[in-house]
Write a protein that binds this DNA or RNA. Structure first.
Lengths: 334, 334
DNA sequence: CTGTTAGCGCGTTCAT
DNA sequence: ATGAACGCGCTAACAG
């Protein structure tokens, strides 16, 4: 792999001159310009941006640290991120933490070593706050989907509380009173917010929150399945349930099918996160849909702004609205 | 961000000594060891691997160039890649080409500039062969999913021809004779292979391949939808159809639903690529399932081997078997 | 318009 | 056991 020095030599100029031509910075006579370009062409010269980055302190590389790219919600976010990043000339390294604080901190460590210009982080549930560490290292961060308590960072997230609130309201209007929730991990703000929305809707209607109807688990298919099995052993059985994430919803629907409980005839189900349109031929689950792609894009734009030093002072929390999509998984109680 | 020089200064030693302690290379007295470690701790020292990479010519970063991370098939591949990579201490940059040769070459250019140690590439359909360029640049490459004609590169792909063959055989056994194919882009080896499998199965059975029953398009939902609409205008209508990719299958199913053609009563449908189990609560499409995760993993392992210079000489083509999953979208003709 | 010098942060080579 | 010098490839800063 040729260096700029070799190009310069072939063109009969000094390295810096070749550099100027190649980066189109500074002056250069047409003659020199030609010679350098030709030399670069001839040698198949490709600049080594590592060396450049070492000086410029810019790598034009971002990192996306999510829990699992396999979840269609995160996939869509990732696509939004990559699109926004590549438009501005940035690349994206992606990392899956699987909600493990350990994996997360290992990744963050490496990413900082690699001098990424910024990190989009979906913080894994954990005691430790990763932000302080990142701050010390002077990395730009934007939190994605989840906020962190007592932490002054940019966040781009969706309105989980409102989404949950609306879904429960919808069930209440249909006459349901025994409404269960399959909630996500403690300490994860989106899970807590959805729980809060659930609570709020019930209380607003003058209903008590029944602890028996609250099931907690992971944001996973398996967990959704397990929680639903427990739920089904209750008697009287709830007439409606709220699966607080797409994977939980899938697990729930599987469990209901296995138990031959029909939706919505025997139980109404609402979910959070839509399954991408492309995936489901005949969608039937009523959900609160989050603008995943937008979220990725917005967060990336925000991150790039802070990298460019535009808005260093003001910390922003961008909350995107969710939209309720009513389909066929709920039914009025009679 | 502190440099090793500052750490050394604080510890009262020379930079190189600090370096030795931190990288655990060479000798250092226990006393010095302690002092350096403490200094590093105190300053929150994180080594700048850019500088290291500049010397070592290793970035421990790979790139995954796919068409669209949003396709669950690629998502799964991506997860396999990232898992295999991170296990070995590598990070992964991901890029979406959307089948555009232009985007692809722009990405490849940047990736080389960034000195990635290797590239996992799903080549976009194009006249130009990107491999020669990569060869010149001395980058390690493993092709994913698709091979390239007359090109001596490692490939990890699935047995598309056999998958298609088996699916068509299955339809033939059910008595179908008018079997349509919704094929993918010309010049994309997986699309061509599936076409070949289709052809082969028919010919083996002594049937002629009827050009009217061959529809060509993109690997996209929309394209699947369009092709199916055309297919439905045929009379007599085919009794069975083969959607040669997951997105095409989704589009096809949508079109069939919109036209109120029932599957499998009025038409049998088989597809390529399974929709991830997690996604589909009640899967019903009969498909040839590719081991997407494995493919990602195997390709990455192979790439890392070549990076480590283990097997530079022998070019390998790894072909993974697909498995037919029979469900409820086909019916015997009577 | 072009070139010399110097340094980004690190680690290899060769001394001491 | 520790350190000085040098260079990876590139580009500001400063001549000329």
């Amino acid at each position: 792999m040729p260096t700029i020095r070799e190009v310069a030599k072939l063109a009969g100029v000094a390295p810096i001159t070749a550099s100027r031509v190649i980066n189109d910075s500074g002056y250069a006579s047409e003659d020199v310009r030609q010679r350098v370009k030709q030399a670069a062409e001839q040698l198949n010269y490709v600049p080594n941006v590592l060396a450049r980055s070492l000086k410029s302190k810019r790598t034009h590389t971002l990192a996306l640290v999510i829990t699992d790219i396999t979840n269609p919600f995160w996939t869509t976010v990732a696509r939004g991120v990559e699109d926004a990043a590549s438009t501005k000339g940035y690349n994206v390294i992606f990392c899956n933490t699987d909600e493990s604080a350990q994996k997360q901190s290992a990744y963050l460590q490496t990413l900082i070593q690699k001098q990424v210009d910024g990190i989009l982080l979906v913080p894994a549930s954990s005691e430790e706050n990763p932000i302080e560490f990142l701050r010390q290292q002077n990395v730009n961060v934007v939190l994605l989907d989840r906020s962190l308590p007592n932490t002054n960072v940019d966040v781009v997230r969706c309105d989980s509380k409102d989404g949950a609130y609306q879904l429960i309201k919808l069930l209440l209007k249909l006459g349901h009173r025994r409404i269960a929730i399959l909630r996500g991990p403690f300490g994860v703000s989106s899970a807590e917010d959805r729980m809060a929305g659930y609570r709020f809707a019930l209380q607003e209607t003058g209903l008590e929150v029944n602890d028996q109807l609250i099931f907690s688990g992971e944001f996973s298919v398996d967990s959704g399945y397990q929680m639903t099995k427990k739920l089904l052993s209750l008697s009287p059985r709830p007439t409606a349930m709220f699966a607080s994430n797409n994977f939980i919803a899938i697990g729930a629907l599987k469990a209901l099918r296995d138990a031959q409980v029909s939706v919505p005839d025997e139980i109404s189900v609402v979910g959070f996160d839509d399954l991408p349109l492309a995936i489901v031929v005949d969608p039937f689950l009523t959900v609160a849909d989050q603008p995943a792609y937008d979220m990725g894009q917005r967060a990336t734009q925000r991150l790039l702004e802070t990298i460019d030093g535009e808005l260093i002072d003001s910390v922003q929390e961008i909350v995107l609205p969710v939209s309720i999509i009513e389909r066929k998984s709920t039914k009025s109680i009679s």
